[in-house]
Design a protein around this nucleic acid. Structure first.
Length: 305
DNA sequence: ATCCAGGAACTGT
DNA sequence: ACAGTTCATGGA
């Protein structure tokens, strides 16, 4: 992390190929989002750092990102942790030059790569959040998925009220591990999803499943295999989590419906492409599939599709 | 009403 | 390995 601590606020210095506004546009895609809010160009996010709730105001400032703390100035260590979170959230460890080099020569990505230049994969540093969000999103439309997530977070997550706004953090593993199936099904979660989510919380509570253990795996195939051994995690969820949480640029959720729709609209196809066709479009994407998918997802939000 | 949604487990072959 | 079935509910 490249940063400077100014005590009342901190400043991050992202690598080249970064545009705060493009990232913010992606964060604004749903008005049902409960884990961050956007006001006057600033992104507000509540973090839980070593047991204390810390409200962050994240703003783009020329080539840097400033993180202010409107509610209360945190300690040195907390400021550093907040910086590390945002660094990971915006995927700032990634050098995107290879992606843009490839995309400039790629018929599918050429236009979107230029159009959304500086956009990064907006990540979910918290493994539990990434897994739960992916499972919630399985086989239901996104609008309903956001509704379920909102209920989940507001029911089980801690919050902090500041300036008349209420901010939430994602529910803790400990809290969810203690739930019964019915605690979730009464909020319209399916029985299966309730089982998956509580099961994962229990595995994480016991330390059997951690982000560190996954990242220690030898290669991306081993990570994928470990993820898919979890009940409720199939190929799509494993790829999604590797992409959004584990920073694996070659993760490729090829069966994703959003990807299919993006390709259909972008290429003017009459129907959604088959998996074989997508593999052909993506022959050049090797090593950057996750960014290709993310930029294609981004294109969906231009036409309200 | 009908189809589909940022799938996965289960079952039978 | 592969195809078909079930789950489960809201949005368009």
């Amino acid at each position: 992390m490249n940063w400077v601590d100014h005590e009342t606020y901190i400043e991050l210095y992202p690598p080249a190929e970064f545009d705060f506004k493009e990232c913010r546009i992606f964060l604004e895609r749903s008005d049902q989002e409960v884990l961050h809010q956007i006001k006057d160009g600033a992104v507000y996010k509540l973090l839980e750092i070593k047991g204390s709730l810390i409200l962050c105001k994240v703003v783009g400032s020329g080539h840097s990102i400033k993180i202010e703390f409107p509610a209360k100035t945190p300690s040195v260590l907390e400021r550093k942790k907040a910086g590390e979170y945002v660094w990971e959230w915006f995927d700032l460890e990634c050098d995107l030059s290879g992606f843009y080099q490839m995309a400039a020569q790629d018929e599918v990505l050429k236009t979107v790569a230029r159009k959304y230049g500086g956009l990064r994969i907006m990540c979910m540093p918290d493994l539990f959040e990434a897994l739960v969000w992916a499972i919630i999103g399985q086989q239901i439309n996104l609008a309903f998925a956001y509704t379920l997530k909102k209920r989940f977070v507001e029911q089980f997550g801690e919050s902090l009220t500041f300036g008349g706004d209420k901010f939430f953090v994602f529910p803790s593993v400990h809290k969810i591990a203690s739930l019964k199936i019915e605690d979730l099904t009464k909020h319209q979660f399916s029985t299966r999803k309730a089982e998956y989510i509580i099961g994962i919380a229990k595995d994480m509570e016991s330390g059997k499943l951690t982000k560190e253990l996954l990242l220690q795996q030898q290669d991306i195939h081993q990570i994928r295999k470990s993820l898919m051994s979890i009940r409720g995690v199939g190929a799509w969820t494993a790829d999604y989590v590797m992409m959004k949480c584990l920073h694996q640029p070659s993760a490729f959720p090829i069966a994703d419906v959003g990807l299919h729709n993006a390709l259909k609209h972008l290429l003017g196809l009459k129907q959604k492409p088959t998996l074989n066709e997508i593999e052909r479009y993506g022959v050049n994407w090797e090593g950057w599939q996750a960014y290709a998918v993310f930029y294609l997802w981004r294109s969906l939000y231009d036409n309200k599709l």
